[in-house]
Every structure is written in structure tokens, then in C-alpha cells.
Simulated scan of single mutants.
Amino acid sequence: MRFPGLPAVFSACIAVIGCTSNGPSVDDLLARPSQETTSSVTRQDNVVPPAAIGSASSDGREPQQMLAMAPSDPAPEVMTAAFAMPTPSVKPSMRGQIYKQRFRDAKPINFGSTSPDSLAVHGVDVSRWQGEIDWATLRAHGANFAYIKATDGGDHLDPMFKKNWRAAAEAGLRRGAYHFFYWCRTASEQADWFIRNVPKVQGALPPVLDVEWNGTSRCKKRPSRSQVLEKMQVFMDKLERHYGQRPIIYTAPDFYRDNLRGEFSDYPFWLRSVAAHPSKVYPDRKWLFWQYSGSGLSNGVDGKIDLNAFHGGEDEWHRWIAAHAG
């Protein structure tokens, strides 16, 4: 989820003036390959042994029968909300404490008047690459929720998932799991693999489907837009039936440009936008979570960590949790 730095002129625009109308146009922002990744991305050398997996048909459609094919990559991991907020009442006694974020950033960006600091509820996403996490300390420094890498493809399980899943809950964080989609595997098989490894538990956040282009993948396939949308729908339908929660779509600027503009308007989005407010990069897209940094720093974790914010205030957060947490 983290690539080399942005072009200098764009970075200067953001740092100095918050990328006003004098900066790059929306088309310019979406036309260039995504330069944004997160701290969850590191080349993985040791691959979990493959399981039996399915293959797509020659036209890219999801098959009715599963066939064996090559295992998934050691794929880089990755990881939106003017979304209509539900209005169930929430008793004060049921509300968890919201900790004010005290995160730092190794590569700070001046977002101007649209700074994520104005948002009340912050959280993180993590994978094996964050190593051993002191979850209680991380929570106290502002991680009110955590999305935890679970799976990618149809045969990879993050070796820290089970430990992080348990420890995050013990520390009082709202937790959810995410899956990194692999374009050389069938969507139905990937959904089965996620369901096999991610427990269905009360209070869990909705599952996340992480879709993006992966330039380091062994899988060089880039399906057509129609095939991408079909695969995503197959995966999300299967998860929604199992967990009873509508999945959240996580994506990056270039993948969004190629496939998702104007699509899935009834799904919540989690948008990666580490150099400008999402409204600049994803115009007209409602979002639920904003990943605003891939270079965050916090007590409780060594090295960099991804930082995210919920689109709304504390009351909206509690209402959303009451309506959508499992």
C-alpha cells in the first residue's frame, strides 16, 4: 500500500496551499499511476503453502466449477463517509471511550482546512509487517479501531492475524478484517478462504475487500472493467451472505480511475488518499473511511503504521457501530 514518493510539484502544491484550484486537476490526479502505499506493504519472501484453488475461465468470468491453478503471490497488502448514517439510539453505557489521536507522521502533509485532525475517530490498519504490537498503548494513543490483514488470494493467511485479532479486542478496539484480492484467482475461492479464516463474531466491523493494481505481483493479469466488477460482486455477495454485513471496498486512486468511478454506489468505501483530501482525488464519491497516511508513527508499534479516520463525529460513529458492527 505504499509506493515511492509523489512527484515534487504535486507534493509542493499540497504542502504549501492544500492543493487549491490552482493545483493539479482531478484528471491529472487520476491519470498517473498511484504513488501511494501503506506501511502494510513489504515484499513477502516466505509464502504460506498453497491450498487447492479455482481458476477463472478464459474470458475472465467466474467459473461454476473449481479447477487447480498456480498459488497466489506473496502479495503486498493493502488496504471511506458522507454515507447515510443510520439513526438507532445508543445508550451512553454502551459507548466505548473515544481516544483523541496522538499520532505522528514520518512524512507529514499539510492538508490545509481539510486536515484529518478535524475528524474525531481515528484508527489503524495492520499486518504482519508491524510485528509485535502493544495494543493497549496503541489504543491509548488514538487507535479506536483497527482493520487487520487476514488473507490474500486463496491460500495466504497473515501469520499475525489470529494474534492481532485477539489482542485488539482485548485492548478494547473495534476490529475488522480485510482481504487483499488477487486477480489470477477466482473470486468465489477467495471468499471461501476468507470465510474459513475470519471468525463471525459479535461486534466485529464489516469485512473489507481491498482492490488495487499490484505492480510487483507474479500475476500480470489486469482484467477488464466488466470482469473486475463481476469478480468483486461475487466476492462481496458471498461475504455478505455469511457475515450478514455489507462489505466495505478499499481502493487506491489508479484502480478507482480504471474500474470504480460511478460503480457500487450502495457500498461503503474506504479511500487511500495520502496527499490530498479524498474529495480532490475521488470527486463525487461518498466515503466512510479515509486512509490519510502510510507513514504514521505511534507508541505501541515499532516502525510505520497506516493511519485512518472515520467520516463523522463521535455520535455518528456510535450510531454507525450500533447499526453495522456484527
Rank of each mutant, 00 (worst) to 15 (best):
A276H: 05
S295R: 04
V281W: 06
R272D: 04
F289T: 07
V301L: 08
A309H: 05
Y267V: 13
K304W: 12
G296M: 13
D266T: 11
I305G: 01
L288R: 05
K280C: 10
G262K: 06
A252Y: 13
H311C: 13
Y256E: 00
Y250H: 07
F264D: 00
E314A: 15
N308W: 11
T251V: 13
H277I: 12
R261C: 10
F264K: 03
L307E: 03
S298H: 01
D306Q: 05
G312Q: 03
N299L: 12
G300H: 03
D266E: 01
E314R: 12
G303I: 11
G296C: 07
P283W: 01
P283V: 12
S273G: 08
S295D: 12
A309N: 04
R285M: 06
G296H: 07
T251D: 00
L307F: 11
D266Y: 03
V301W: 00
F264V: 11
N308K: 03
F269C: 08
Y267K: 04
N259K: 05
D254Y: 15
G312C: 12
D306F: 10
K280N: 06
D306E: 07
I305W: 02
E316K: 06
Y292W: 15
H277S: 10
I249V: 11
G300M: 11
Y256Q: 04
G294W: 05
V301E: 00
Y250C: 13
D284S: 08
L271H: 04
Y250R: 00
Q291M: 14
D306V: 12
V274H: 03
F310Y: 08
G303K: 02
S265A: 09
Y282F: 15
Y282I: 13
N259V: 14
L288K: 01
A276T: 11
P283A: 06
I305D: 00
A252S: 13
I249C: 04
S295L: 11
N259T: 13
L260W: 02
K280Y: 05
G303R: 03
L297S: 05
G312N: 07
R257H: 14
R285T: 09
L260E: 00
S273I: 15
P283E: 00
D302P: 02
P278V: 09
